[in-house]
């Protein structure tokens, strides 16, 4: 049942051409950066900025929009003897898988052509991009299920993006200013690990030599994230950010009175 539903959703997504556009964008952006920027670090930083900004934004926007547009399909399916969890999962993976494919191929093909695919920074970028896609589609679905009005849920999605991609860092900076007299390394690690976008940024940055510029804090970070504990914490944080919203969304979906 799950696979058949997944097939319907995938076919629907494929008709929309958004995925093609998304794929094309990553292809052009990656190739452009590789072509115009000298040095691996600079290219990866440019690409990282795109990934960290665009993937959450696209996932949140498209995720909420798609669920609202699928209302007819959802109502039709709900009238059938199918478990609600199955429908929700099919909707989620039906959207996530094409976008993941588009991102991974769009980034991997140019980097492979330039012979950089196996470099740790590119691999970590791909991994964090995949994680961010999973996380922010899950969040988008929660928003779309909880808020019935399309415009309102789009607005909410945008606010979530603004908060996590931009404002959160402002808050981190404010905290470091307020508590400048205290040793903040552990606190900043906790704050960074709590936000998937920041976590993704740090994971990618630690793969290239930028750590040397980060002085003492950088050394603390590398010690933490380079060790088994840090890797576990990062994976756990990104995993929880995917599983918990997915679970909340699935529950709300199951209980919702359509």
């Amino acid at each position: 049942m799950m696979t058949r539903l997944l097939g319907f959703v995938l076919r629907d997504i494929a008709r929309g051409r958004w995925v093609i556009l998304y794929f094309g964008f990553f292809l052009v952006a990656t190739e452009g950066l590789l072509y115009f920027t000298a040095g691996e670090a600079k290219t990866v930083v440019g690409l990282m900025n795109i990934v960290l900004m665009l993937i959450p934004l696209a996932a949140l926007m498209f995720g909420t929009l798609h669920l609202h547009h699928s209302r007819d399909f959802i109502e039709l399916m709900l009238s059938q003897p199918v478990k609600r969890f199955t429908i929700y999962s099919a909707l989620y993976f039906g959207v996530v898988l094409p976008f993941l494919g588009a991102f991974v191929l769009g980034t991997a093909i140019p980097t492979a052509i330039h012979g950089m695919l196996t470099s740790p920074s590119v691999l970590s970028l791909l991994a964090t991009g995949v994680a961010l896609t999973l996380v922010f589609f899950a969040i988008a679905f929660v928003v779309a299920v909880k808020i019935n009005d399309k415009a309102a849920s789009m607005g909410m999605a945008f606010i979530i993006w603004l908060a996590s991609a931009v404002l959160y860092d402002g808050l981190v900076l404010a905290v470091t200013v307020w508590y400048a007299d205290y040793p903040l390394e552990t606190a900043t690690i906790a704050m960074v690990a709590a936000n998937p976008i920041d976590l993704a940024r740090i994971i990618v940055m630690l793969t290239f030599d930028y750590v040397a510029l980060m002085g003492y804090t950088g050394a603390v970070f590398q010690n933490f994230f380079g060790e088994a504990l840090g890797i576990t914490v990062s994976a756990l944080s990104l995993g929880l950010w995917t599983v918990i919203p997915f679970w909340i969304g699935a529950r709300a979906f199951a209980k919702k009175d359509w």
């Binding site: 930083v45 990282m48 900025n49 860092d169 400048a180 940024r201 940055m205 930028y210 510029l213 980060m214």
Partner: peptide, 15 residues
Amino acid sequence: QLPSSVILMHSAFVN
């Protein structure tokens, strides 16, 4: 002034 703010390097807010 705040060495630990180096963790925000390359973040959107800092740009």
